[in-house]
Simulated scan of single mutants.
Amino acid sequence: MSSEHIRNEGIPYSTEYFDHININRSAVERRASSLPARRTVKKEYQAAWLLKAVNCIDLTTLSGDDTAGNVYRLCQKALQPVRQDILQALGFEDLTVGAVCVYHNMISDAKKALGSSSLPIAAVSTGFPAGKIPLEQKLQEIKASVAAGATEIDIVISRELVLNNKWEELYEEVKACREACGEAHMKTILATGEIPTLTKVAKASWVSMMAGSDFIKTSTGKEAVNATLPVSLVMVRAIREFYELTGVKVGYKPAGGIQKAKQALDFLILIKEELGVEWLNNQLFRFGASSLLGDIERQLEHYVTGSYSASYRHAMA
């Protein structure tokens, strides 16, 4: 992330900001369902939006069988996410993703693979994905990842605090994590698939931003349900209201289950309509994805050549 972006220092805890929230699920779902139906982009405009999507991807590998070789391939793809011949046909010389995202023990491998590149390294932390470890251990894990070279930290909240309406405890937990991050930017994962109501999603979003989160993020990618447009609508409107209150722009990261270029376009359209073009950059918007990049590259090749290629023709995404 650029150092020019103003970080979220947080605000003092107060329930007055979110006590009144009561989300109408049917209204949210109706609004979310209208986006793919009413908004679409074609031809050169679609290609431009897809290139924007590539630049906003946190290219991710979070598997139990990750190896140094996997991370090396991931990083090389992150540095050149779209084939050079396709980029040249589109009038582009250079393009990278927003960051690479790995487990803590893979940070050193990512640093080595990226060499002199300034591409950010994001590390998942705080007992990812369940977060079922003591707070002290969470803070130690964050500090260790920052010391190892991670410039972005993706934390997971303790979902039981949300389920039991322990909002002040959640605030203190996220605030402590923010302090442990130091100069590293912090993305706070709500794991919305494990939060039963949109009202609680909205309140958790508010508390996380109040505590100093630089981004709020939907999911770990390990839940049964991950990023959806209705959940995203609730979260980005909380971001908009926080900005109206404080003047601070908090970023948004949908993650998990976003595999197709058309889905990426839907999320970009949501951001443009609800937050505006100022959020359409990788300082304030990221996709958490692994397979999305492959489909976007196929769509871009189709735009250039008029033909779809088989997915196996594209390098690891």
Rank of each mutant, 00 (worst) to 15 (best):
A89Q: 12
L35M: 14
G131E: 11
S63I: 09
E152P: 05
K166M: 14
V231N: 10
S307M: 11
S213G: 05
F242P: 01
L275R: 00
I239R: 02
A123Q: 09
A148E: 14
L59C: 05
T228S: 15
M235Q: 11
I133L: 07
F267D: 00
R39L: 12
W167P: 00
R73W: 03
G294L: 13
T96Y: 03
L170N: 03
R313I: 07
K111C: 11
I121L: 10
K175F: 12
V28Y: 01
Q84L: 06
G127H: 09
Y171V: 03
L90M: 08
S205I: 01
C101T: 09
A180N: 01
E93W: 02
E4A: 15
I296Q: 07
L293I: 08
T197L: 06
K203C: 06
M316D: 11
G91H: 06
S26A: 14
L114K: 00
S26Y: 07
V82G: 04
A27C: 10
F215A: 02
I23S: 02
Q88Y: 01
V97D: 07
N70K: 15
M106R: 12
A204C: 01
V234C: 01
A144W: 03
M1H: 14
G91M: 03
V41F: 11
G98M: 00
T197F: 08
M1A: 13
E29I: 08
M235Y: 04
V124G: 03
N70T: 14
Y13N: 11
Q80S: 15
A27Y: 08
E160Y: 12
L87V: 09
S26H: 13
N281G: 12
V207Q: 00
V277G: 01
P196L: 13
W49M: 13
I142N: 05
E168S: 10
A261C: 09
N226V: 05
K253Y: 08
S26V: 09
F287K: 07
A89L: 04
R298A: 12
G98V: 06
